[in-house]
Every structure is written in C-alpha cells, then in structure tokens.
C-alpha cells in the first residue's frame, strides 16, 4: 500500500520539479538527454578498481542540483535506494577478492572493497543522472527530444499515454487493494483464489477505458498519427552546455584529477 502512494508521490514530485524555470530547465531537452548519455557512458567506463577517478564526476550532479534548485534530501533518499541488484552482486566482491589494493600507513583496503565501493559510487551517480534528467526536463520535453532523435511518433504517443494513465490506474489499484484489505485484514496479499478475478476485472475495465480513450481521440480527428507541437530550435547555449560537459567528462576520464590534486598536495607537503 505504501508502495503505491509512494510511487505516485514520486512521479508527481518529479513532475513538479520539471516545471521549474531555472537555467538548467531552460536548456534544450535534447542537449540534456545527450549530456546525460555522455555522462553515463563515461561513468560506467571506469574500471572495476577505479575509485578516486570517479569522484570528479560528482561535480555534474552537484552543479545541476544547485542550479536547478532540486531539493537535495528528497533526491538523496531516492538515490540511496540504489538497485538491490548492485548491492546483491557487489557485496560478493569484498568476500571473493581480498587482495590488498590501497595500502596506507594505518590501513590496508582490499581490492574487493574498492570494487564494491566503485560499484556503489557508480550506482549512485547513474541513478542521479537519470533522476536529474527527468526532474529538470519533464516528460513532455523528453518526448520532444525523442521526436528530434527520430523516435517513431507511434512509440512516443504510446509512451505519453502510458505515463498519463499511470496516475489513473495506480489510484484505481490503490482503491481496490484498500477495499480488499478492509475485508481481509489478516492477509499479506491477494489470496490465490482471487488472483484472477481481481486483476482480471481490472484488466477488463482497463480495456473498456482504452476503448473510450480511443473514441475520444477519434472524435478529435486522430487518424493513427500523433502530431507533436513545434520543435524548439537548438541554441548556442545548448550546444555549449552539451559541449562543455562532454569535454569535462572526457578530461576526467583521461586524467585522474583526484590523484593529480593528491600528488600536488603531497608534493607541497614534502
């Protein structure tokens, strides 16, 4: 139940954030989609045992969060729920690989731990990138970017419809489950004998709804083709945004900034 309210809340919050009008929100959606792409590829291209090199990648989400006025704590909560698969798989690394890797005067850290940490950091960074994309762009503009990337209109319309009706159907499922659990307080989930009828009835209602939606689309001249609005032109600042970040990401990829700063510090110290 909390799952349901939570997911609706989640979608609506990100929707709301997407409506803001900050510098970042005004960047062309296509530029943001591509920047996110470059960022993701660079992030995951780091090797299994690279940790310090990943840290400068944090500048991107931090700057975007600050400029786009995204609430830090709400974002952090979401990101901490990193895919269970990452932890599930990553947790074996320290067990399976205990060779020392980082040797400091007071502690020796095994490469298993380094690779686990590296995985977690990547998990956080990639999750942040996706959430920041949607919360600084909004679904409508994502659709626009997809259109400019030559994604077929049929798919985009279908994608938008799914998005739109998630609200309606999740609420409906919420009502059904509430009604069900009120009459079966001791059960953890839907009883076996009700699996088919509960879900099936919802499915039939959904199909009827789809038909009504189709009717109302047809009444407004729908002929199988989705007509998107005006394509917004790309401006110089959009190219600059994409170019600037890409160059920065590539520099990070080729030079370990953290280590450079570190050796500089040590050098100065000596």
């Amino acid at each position: 139940m909390s799952n349901i309210t939570q997911s609706l809340y989640n979608i609506r919050l990100l929707d709301e954030l997407g409506e803001k009008k900050t510098v970042i929100h005004q960047i062309h959606p296509l530029a943001k989609v591509l920047t996110t792409g470059v960022y993701l590829v660079v992030t995951v291209s780091f090797g299994r045992y690279e940790l310090s090199g990943l840290i400068p990648l944090l500048f991107y989400p931090i700057i975007v969060i600050a400029l786009a006025e995204i609430p830090v704590i709400t974002m952090a909560k979401r990101v901490l729920l990193v895919s269970p698969l990452i932890i599930g798989i990553g947790v074996f690394n320290p067990i399976l690989n205990q060779d020392p890797m980082i040797v400091l005067p007071w502690i020796i850290i095994s490469s298993g731990w380094v690779s686990f940490l590296s995985l977690l950091v990547k998990g956080v960074l990639t999750a942040l990138a996706a959430l920041l994309l949607i919360s600084t762009t909004g679904i409508t503009k994502i659709a626009l970017a997809l259109r400019m990337m030559r994604v077929p209109k049929v798919f985009i319309l279908q994608f938008l419809l799914t998005y739109r009706y998630i609200s309606v159907l999740v609420e409906e499922v919420g009502r059904i489950i509430r009604a069900y659990s009120l009459r079966s307080p001791r059960e953890k989930g839907i009883r076996f004998s009700n699996w088919g009828s509960l879900t099936g009835q919802l499915l039939i209602r959904t199909l009827d709804r789809a038909q009504r939606v189709y009717y109302s689309m047809r009444c407004r001249g729908f002929k199988g083709e989705y007509n998107v609005g005006r394509e917004v032109g790309i401006q110089f600042r959009d190219i600059l945004y994409l170019g600037g970040w890409s160059v920065y990401f590539l520099i990070i990829r080729y030079f370990n900034i953290s280590e450079l700063i570190g050796s500089l510090m040590i050098g100065v110290g000596k």
């Binding site: 679904i139 938008l160 998005y163 739109r164 009706y165 709804r209 009504r212 939606v213 109302s216 689309m217």
Partner: peptide
C-alpha cells in the same frame, strides 16, 4: 468521464 478525454500529460 474527463479522464477518458484528457489523455495527454
């Protein structure tokens, strides 16, 4: 039902 008619985001 307006939900059937308002199908865009």
């Amino acid at each position: 039902n307006p939900d059937d008619q308002l199908f865009m985001p």
